[in-house]
Structure formats: structure tokens, C-alpha cells
């Protein structure tokens, strides 16, 4: 049977979904790419610059858009999956709008949701004006203005690591991996925008796991004099002047530290996307203790699900940076090609 007669449905048109779609289309498979938002690209659309080299994220978006520019890819934006039937290794899938017919394989690339920072009420997101998330800060970078709600330039900015990650209190035991380096990147960007500002990162552990991350960390210290305080922020309040007061312990000194800041940035972590979790019952797939989809093997089966013909790509299986997401998506394409050539 010719590849063209094989049909693959990819759920999620973010980085992983698009990269896998491009690869598989070039192999000659017919692809239906379902994206719930109005345009493809996913979370990266919100980001301004990427670590570790601070290239503009639009460059990567361009790459992704080129990937899916292929006659065999049917991109359906603003669409969500509705019904699934699974029989003899084939899926019949319909969206709310149309019937996609039979699929020989399905790739889940539903990605992640950012942690809802209002759940950590002690940090005051949604309560105090100038407590923002890392995503809000990216939006500020887009607009070019980093201002408090009173339209003032912040003189001192605090950055809180591990918000919604490594936290038993919100049921997320895992490390979201990318927040540490995001904090370093954003600290540098703040200093770049406002050279005479002070930036303080409050961290539990600095996890610089990727290539050139440690170098970025060094740069932040050497070139930008970003301050790092080892201690988890546990309370935020507002004083009469409307400045934020944060309480932490400077654990390396063994003394509590109190500090006023004009703006507090919460490094919100990753958790499995609600949209992805909604597919759980439809496909009969499982999640691990970290809430992400459970892969068949941690080392050599990290694109495989517990259902034959159903594959995963990207951050629906674990927190990942963009590099790893792209590699993971390409690996998924290889797995799917192999699976379809056997069946």
C-alpha cells in the first residue's frame, strides 16, 4: 500500500504537532492536523525571545510554519476533537464540525498548560497589581514597555522560581525544568530594558541542564549583575505605598529576609494541558504520577502510549524545552513511519 493512502491524525498544532506533521507529510502520509486555537504554533507564539541565545521566537515560528506548508497537511484551526472509535488498530475520528474518517495512527501533541498562579494565593497573583507571571512579562517584552500598573518603571524586580512546580501543596511534585533558565533569561532582558534596575531571583535550586544554560547563568552574573538568593518566597504583602513586600529566608546566611520590590514575576511551571487530559477517556490512555501522559518506556519508548497506533510528541509527556520538543516530535515521526510500514 502506498503511503498516501495512510492517514494520520495529529492532535495539537503547537511546536511538536507541527514538526511531526511536516516530517510525516514529507514521508508521503496524509495528515489531519487539529488545533483548538485560531493559529498554529502553540505557546511559542506568546514568547518574545528564547533561551539560551535569546533569538527572537518568531524565527522558530517561521520554521514551524514552513514545516506545515505541505499539500498533504490538512490544518484545521479552531477545531477540537469530538468522538473517537477504536477498532482493530484503526481510529475513526470526528471533530465537532466534520468527520475525519479513518486514521491509521494518531499522534497526541496537546502540550502543556502553564500553572494557574492564583492557586498559590500567598504570592498574591490576581490580588496585588504588580505580581505577574513569566508569561505576562513576555507580553510586556512584546509591547516593549515594562511598567507597573501605575505606569512607572520598576526599580527593583523579584523573580520567584518554582511556582507550581516541585510543590506538594498544589499536587505538582515534578520539576518543570525550563523555569530556572527562563528566569535567568528574563532577568537579563529586564536589565537590558532597564539598566539601572535591580533584579533578584529567589530559587530553591538552580537547574541549568541544557547546552549554554550555565553560560547564560554566568553571563547574568558577570555582565548584568543579577542577584540570586537561595530561599523560597513564602509570603507577599503590600505596604501602604503599594510596594510589594516579600518574605523569604536567605538560607545561605540563615536569616529571614524581607524586601520591597516594585514588581514580582512568578515563574509558573508546566502541567499537562487540560485539553489533553480531556482525551484520556476517549482514547483510554494513562497518566503518570506527575500528571503527564505515561510513556511506554522511559528510555526507548518515550513516544509510545499504551494503545497501539497512538503516539505522543512533546510536552504532553513531560516538561521540555523547544529543542527537546522538536527532537521528540521528529522521533515520533520515525516511530509512526515504522509502525505504519509494519501494519
Amino acid at each position: 500500500m502506498h503511503n498516501k493512502e495512510k492517514h494520520i491524525v495529529i492532535i495539537g498544532g503547537g511546536t511538536a504537532g507541527c514538526v511531526a506533521a511536516g516530517r510525516l507529510a514529507r514521508e508521503g502520509y496524509r495528515i489531519s492536523l487539529i488545533e483548538k486555537d485560531k493559529k498554529p504554533g502553540g505557546k511559542i507564539n506568546n514568547w518574545y525571545q528564547l533561551f539560551p541565545d535569546r533569538r527572537r521566537s518568531v524565527e522558530v515560528t517561521d520554521y514551524i510554519n514552513k514545516e506545515i506548508d505541505h499539500p498533504l497537511i490538512d490544518l484545521m484551526t479552531g477545531t477540537e476533537l469530538d468522538k473517537v472509535k477504536y477498532k482493530n488498530g484503526k481510529f475513526s475520528i470526528s471533530t465537532g464540525k466534520s468527520d475525519l474518517g479513518q486514521a491509521d495512527a494518531v499522534l497526541i501533541a496537546t502540550g502543556f498548560d502553564l500553572f494557574d498562579a492564583t492557586r498559590k494565593e500567598e504570592y498574591g497573583y490576581g490580588i496585588y497589581d504588580n505580581v505577574i507571571t513569566s508569561l505576562d512579562l513576555e507580553n510586556m517584552f512584546h509591547s516593549g514597555d515594562i511598567l507597573t500598573t501605575k505606569e512607572e518603571i520598576p526599580k527593583r524586580v523579584g523573580i520567584v522560581h518554582c511556582v507550581g512546580s516541585r510543590d506538594e501543596k498544589v499536587g505538582n511534585f515534578h520539576c518543570s525544568k525550563v523555569c530556572c533558565v527562563t528566569a535567568v533569561k528574563q532577568a537579563i532582558e529586564i536589565k537590558e530594558h532597564i539598566p539601572d534596575s535591580e533584579v533578584f531571583c529567589f530559587y530553591m535550586d538552580m537547574r541549568m541542564f541544557g547546552p549554554y544554560y550555565e553560560e547564560l547563568y554566568r553571563e547574568s552574573q558577570e555582565k548584568w549583575v543579577v542577584n540570586y538568593i537561595r530561599g523560597k518566597v513564602s509570603e507577599v504583602s503590600e505596604n501602604i505605598e503599594g510596594r510589594l513586600v516579600i518574605k523569604a529566608e536567605d538560607t545561605l546566611l540563615g536569616k529571614p529576609i524581607r524586601m520591597e520590590v516594585d514588581m514580582l514575576v512568578l515563574m509558573v511551571g508546566m502541567q499537562n494541558a487540560k485539553a489533553g487530559l480531556n482525551l484520556q477517556d476517549k482514547f483510554g490512555i494513562q497518566t503518570g504520577v506527575n500528571g503527564f501522559f505515561r510513556i511506554r518506556d522511559n528510555h526507548y519508548g518515550n513516544n509510545l502510549s499504551n494503545v497501539d497506533g497512538l503516539f505522543y510528541a512533546g510536552t504532553c509527556t513531560a516538561p521540555m524545552n523547544i529543542t527537546d520538543t522538536i527532537s521528540h516530535a521528529r522521533a515520533a515521526a520515525v516511530e509512526i513511519t515504522e509502525y505504519l510500514s509494519k501494519n
Partner: peptide, 9 residues
């Protein structure tokens, strides 16, 4: 893990 959250609050 010695984060100091307890001591801060």
C-alpha cells in the same frame, strides 16, 4: 530540601 520557606513564614 532546605528551601527555607518554613523559616520565612
Amino acid at each position: 530540601i532546605g528551601c527555607g520557606g518554613c523559616a520565612a513564614t
